[in-house]
Amino acid sequence: LHLEPPLARLPQPPHEQHAAMSPEEFISRIMEAEPPDIYLMEDLKKPFTEASMMMSLTNLADKELVFMISWAKKIPGFVELSLADQINLLKCCWLEILMLGLIWRSVDHPGKLIFSPDFKLNREEGQCVEGIMEIFDMLLAATARFRELKLQREEYVCLKAMILLNSNLCSTSPQTAEELASRTRLLRLLDSVIDALVWAISKLGLSTQQQTLRLGHLTMLLSHIRHISNKGMDHLSTMKRKNVVLVYNLLLEMLEANI
């Protein structure tokens, strides 16, 4: 049960197609929205220095961000939200989305972080960057938890969409009619994603109780990812302030939105 805002009782506008989609169709659409493998395409010189590792990490993040915007636009219903909501959601969750992608790529590689097919790091390689080992360890621990749960691709894509759509829900309250309408659309869209995740879990052949527990365990992991992202944001801001790394383009814009 949840309290519906008043506009949710109005007839469904024709453009809200996701509300009429089956969970299976919705998952199929967000699976198609998945970005391709993104390569760093740099000649990595090992051992890394603090500056070279930070430069590789930020170069890759900047590339991934461009694809992330394209991914968000392909989630059914996202572009029907107000532009302000689209911007706010993305600026709040970008590092969480990058981290969940990293966790997914690393889930079958214990002890390693697979940033891209051509940029893989062992835990110990984090030693060369001050303060990053703590973040690597938290990422590896979250990855191990997803490994224990045997995270499925369908569940992963739903969790990623949930991070995006849930990222800004509690930091603003709608003031104008337009903002309220967008908020209502956002809540309906979140309903569709939750339905899709429930459906994905229901296909795994678990008992009803095990399905409920799995839903709880998977969604509880999202609070850990938010925590790691906040730590990562602080770390990147510090590295930028100390001029260890030059942050530019879209990454700079997204980072500054969070400072």
């Binding site: 911007i87 993305l90 879209l250 814009e253």
Partner: peptide, 24 residues
């Protein structure tokens, strides 16, 4: 409009149909 000015690149990517391949 301040939101759009503060997030020029993000705003541009959300509004136009440029594919990431073109920008990468």
């Amino acid at each position: 409009s301040s939101l759009k000015e503060k997030h020029k690149i993000l705003h541009q990517l959300l509004q136009n149909n440029t594919s990431p391949g073109d920008l990468a």
